[in-house]
Design a protein around this nucleic acid. Structure first.
Lengths: 333, 333
DNA sequence: ACTGGCAGTCGGTAGAATCAAGTGCCAGTT
DNA sequence: AACTGGCACTTGATTCTACCGACTGCCAGT
C-alpha cells in the first residue's frame, strides 16, 4: 500500500484505492492511513486534504521498498555517449559530468573532485614569463598541474632558471607536496630568497590541493524543483559556499548513507531538501562524490540510479587514467 | 522631474509632488506624466496605478541624468581589500572577482576571462605519469598553463621523453598555439605517431584556449532580484550556457554600450533583464568583460560603479602581471 | 504655467457563500 | 477479524460582491 508514497504529492484514500494493484476500498485505505500517520510516516497538511509522506516516510520508502531504480534507455544512452566522448582533462570531465547529472534528473547536481591527498611531485619547472616574472609549474603524480607566478627582485637568466629547475626536479620528485615545500629552502645556496618564495608557493599549492573542487551543475533545476522563490534563493546561496557542500556530502557518505532526507543531515537551512550522494573512488579510497539536490519529494529511485551510474563511470574513468599505478608501480625507471 | 524615475517601482503623482526638491503640485506632475507617457518613457500597468518607467525611460535615465554612481565607502574598502589580498592565479582571481561583484550589488555577476588570443608558447614539457601515460604540459606567454594526457602504444623511457621535450621546446617556443600544432608532426622522425598525438593535443589546447572561460558569481542574487520563480529559472538556465553569455556581453560591448536594458540586446529570453557591462582590457585590446545581470529596474548608478571599479582593477592587475611585456620585450635573452 | 477640486476608473482586499476533496466513524457483510 | 458502503463533518480553495483607496483626467480658477 505504501508503494504509492514515492510518486507524487498530497494523495487521498480514494486515489490510492483507485490505483490498479490495490484491490481494497477507500475506507480500508483510510484506516491504514491513520495507522501510518500514528506511526509518523504520513501527515496531512490540514484536515481533509490528502496525506503526504513525512521525512520518516520517505526514509522507509528508500530503505525498504524502493523499486531498484533503472534509468530510461534514452538516459542510459546519454551517459554512454558522454563517457565515450570525454577526452579532455579531469577537471573538464568533472565539470561536464555535473551538468550531465543535472540533465539526467530534474535536480541540481554537485560533483566534488577527489582530493589529491597522496599524490607526489612528478615534475617541477620554472618558466620565465618576463624579466622579473617566473612561473612555477608543478606536475603531480595524479596528473594534476598547478602553477604559481613568482615575482623576483633581481632578474634571472634562462640558464639559471634551467639549472634551478633541474635541481628542484632532482630534489623533489617523489615527495608529497608538503614534504617538497619543507625541503626547498634547504636546497639553498646562491639565490636563497628566491627559493624561499618557491617554498611558499609550494605550500600554497599544497593547501590549494587539499581543498576539493566543487562543480555545480544545473542550478536552474532548483528553480524547477521548488516553487517558493525564497527557498530557491536560500538553497542557491548555500551551494555558493563550496566548503559547506563538500562537508555536507562527505558527512553523509561517512555515515554510510546514500540519501539524506530533510533534517537527516544536520544542516538546518537545507531542511526542505533531500540529498542523494554516491562516492567517487579513485584507487582504494573514496574521496570524491557526486550528489543530487532536490526537494524531499524527489524521485529517489531515479536520482539514486543516475547518481550511481555517473559516480561509477567517473570512478572507472579516473582509475583507468591514474588509479592503477597507485599502489606501487609508478613509471619506468 | 524625471529624476525620480531611477529609484523605485510604481510611483504616483502625489508621491512625486511630495518629494523634497519638487515644488509643484500633483496636478502639474500629472500633466508632465501624460507627456512622458505619450513619448514612451512611462507606462501605467493599469489605469490608476502609478507609472513605471519603460525600457526607453531607463535608457534616458542612464544616458542623460544618471547621478554618476559612487560606491559606498564600505564597499570601496571591500574592493580594496580584495585586490590587496589577491595572490593566487588569474583563474582564481577572476572566479573570486565574480563573487565579489555580486556581493557589491544585489545582482548576479559574470566575469569573462580575456582570451589568450595572441599568446605564444613559452614551454612544452612531457611528463611520464605511468608506463604508457604521458602528460603534455604547455605554458603560454601570458602565464596560462594547459595540460593534456596522452596514451601511448609503446612505453617510452624517461630519457626519450626528456629528449622529445627538449626538441619540442626548441621547435615551438615563440610560436602561437596553432602554429605549434601545425609544426609538430613535421619534427617527425622515430616516434612520429606519438608526435602526431602531441599535435592533436596542441590543436585541442588551441581550441580550448579560444573559448573564453565564464565565471558566474552569486546566482542566488537572481532569486532576490526577480520574484517570479519562472523568471529565475529561465534566466539561470541561460546563464548555464556559457557561450551565450560571452556572446551577449561581447555584443553589448561591441555596440559601444555599457548598459543593455530589456530588449536592447536582441536576446529575447532576457527581455526582463538589464545587463551592465564593463570591459577588461589586457594590453591594448579589450577581450574580457565583467557584467551584472538584474531586473530592468536595477540601480544603474550603483551597478555601473561597481562594474567599473572591478573591471578596471582587474585590468590593472592583469596588466601588471602579464600585460607590460606584450608589445615587444618578451623576457630575458 | 500652475493649482485645487472633483468625478471616474480600477486593482486589491475582506467577507460571505459555495464547492469539492477527503476524513472518521459506524453499522453491516463476508 | 477484515473489509465495505454510507454518511455527516471539516476545511482549504474558489468565486462573488461590495467596498476602499490610490490614481488619473479634466476643468475652472488664480
Amino acid at each position: 500500500m505504501t508503494e504509492y508514497v514515492g510518486t507524487a504529492t498530497p494523495v487521498g484514500s480514494a486515489y490510492v484505492a483507485r490505483t490498479p494493484g490495490v484491490n481494497v476500498s477507500s475506507a480500508t485505505v483510510r484506516s491504514d492511513m491513520v495507522a501510518l500517520e500514528r506511526d509518523g510516516y504520513l501527515v496531512q497538511p490540514h484536515t481533509s486534504a490528502g496525506r503526504i509522506p513525512t521525512d520518516k516516510g520517505y526514509r522507509f520508502f528508500v530503505d525498504h521498498l524502493a523499486p531498484a531504480g533503472i534509468l530510461g534507455t534514452p538516459q542510459r544512452q546519454r551517459v554512454k555517449r558522454f563517457f565515450d566522448r570525454v577526452h579532455g582533462e579531469m577537471e573538464d570531465m568533472l565539470e561536464r559530468a555535473s551538468t550531465l547529472l543535472s540533465e539526467l534528473t530534474p535536480y541540481a547536481a554537485v560533483v566534488v573532485s577527489p582530493s589529491h591527498g597522496s599524490a607526489t611531485v612528478r615534475s617541477v619547472q620554472l618558466v620565465s614569463l618576463a624579466p622579473r616574472l617566473v612561473l612555477l609549474v608543478v606536475v603531480l603524480s595524479d596528473g594534476a598541474v598547478e602553477k604559481r607566478t613568482l615575482e623576483l627582485d633581481e632578474g634571472l637568466s634562462e640558464e639559471e632558471l634551467g639549472r634551478l629547475s633541474t635541481r628542484l626536479v632532482q630534489g623533489l620528485v617523489g615527495c608529497d607536496l608538503d614534504g617538497a615545500a619543507e625541503l626547498v629552502p634547504d636546497a639553498g645556496g646562491a639565490s636563497s630568497t628566491f627559493l624561499e618564495s618557491v617554498g611558499r608557493a609550494l605550500h600554497e599549492i599544497a593547501r590549494a590541493e587539499e581543498s576539493d573542487q566543487v562543480y555545480l551543475g544545473g542550478p536552474s533545476r532548483l528553480a524547477e524543483a521548488f516553487d517558493a522563490v525564497e527557498t530557491v534563493r536560500s538553497v542557491l546561496s548555500i551551494l555558493e559556499q563550496q566548503l559547506v557542500v563538500v562537508t555536507l556530502l562527505r558527512d553523509v557518505l561517512d555515515r554510510g548513507l546514500s540519501v539524506a532526507i530533510g533534517t537527516e543531515h544536520g544542516f538546518e537551512p537545507l531542511a526542505s531538501c533531500a540529498v542523494v550522494v554516491a562516492p567517487v573512488s579513485v584507487g582504494d579510497n573514496e574521496t570524491g562524490a557526486v550528489g543530487l539536490l532536490g526537494p524531499t519529494r524527489m524521485n529517489y529511485p531515479q536520482a539514486l540510479a543516475a547518481a550511481h551510474v555517473v559516480s561509477s563511470e567517473l570512478s572507472e574513468r579516473m582509475n583507468d587514467a591514474f588509479g592503477h599505478h597507485r599502489g606501487g608501480d609508478r613509471g619506468g625507471h
